[in-house]
Simulated assay, not measured.
Amino acid sequence: MAPHRKWVQAEDVILVDILTELALDGKWKSHTGFKSGYLKVIEQKLAEKLPTAGLNTTNIDSRIKTLKKHSMEINEMLNAGSDFEWDYVNHKLVCEKNLFDTWAKVIF
């Protein structure tokens, strides 16, 4: 098992850009998700853009799962009602702190 690795925001941005690129490329996307071998392609693209990061397919797969979990939680909050809003300029969730604290207590 690979050791835990902390990702920085710049790496996340590049990873999401690469995932978007692959999703738009009909060669890598199917109706059930990404086709076999996509992690290796992401690893190669990340190595080109971040040559000193040393990211491997295990790191990438783990980060994709984490990002997917976070996006599902944000989507759930946004669907819960109008008290949660998405700030498209700053790319973040906006709500009152006490509302978020209450939500977090229920989830965690």
Rank of each mutant, 00 (worst) to 15 (best):
M72H: 09
K69P: 08
G54I: 01
L78P: 00
E76V: 06
T58D: 11
K45F: 00
G37M: 09
A23V: 08
D12G: 13
N59E: 07
N59S: 07
F34A: 05
T32G: 08
L39P: 02
I42R: 00
G54M: 01
G81S: 03
A10F: 11
T58V: 10
G26E: 04
A53N: 04
I42D: 00
S71D: 07
V13E: 13
V13F: 13
K35S: 06
I42E: 01
T32S: 09
T20L: 15
G81M: 04
L15R: 01
F34L: 07
L15D: 01
K40F: 15
A47E: 03
L78F: 04
H4Y: 10
Q44H: 11
E73D: 14
V16I: 14
V8M: 12
I14D: 03
W7T: 07
A23T: 09
I18G: 02
E48A: 14
F34T: 00
D17C: 08
L19Y: 01
T20S: 15
E11Q: 08
H4I: 14
Y38S: 00
E73L: 08
F34C: 06
K6G: 15
W28K: 01
E21C: 07
R63K: 06
I74D: 05
E48D: 14
M72K: 12
V41G: 02
G33A: 02
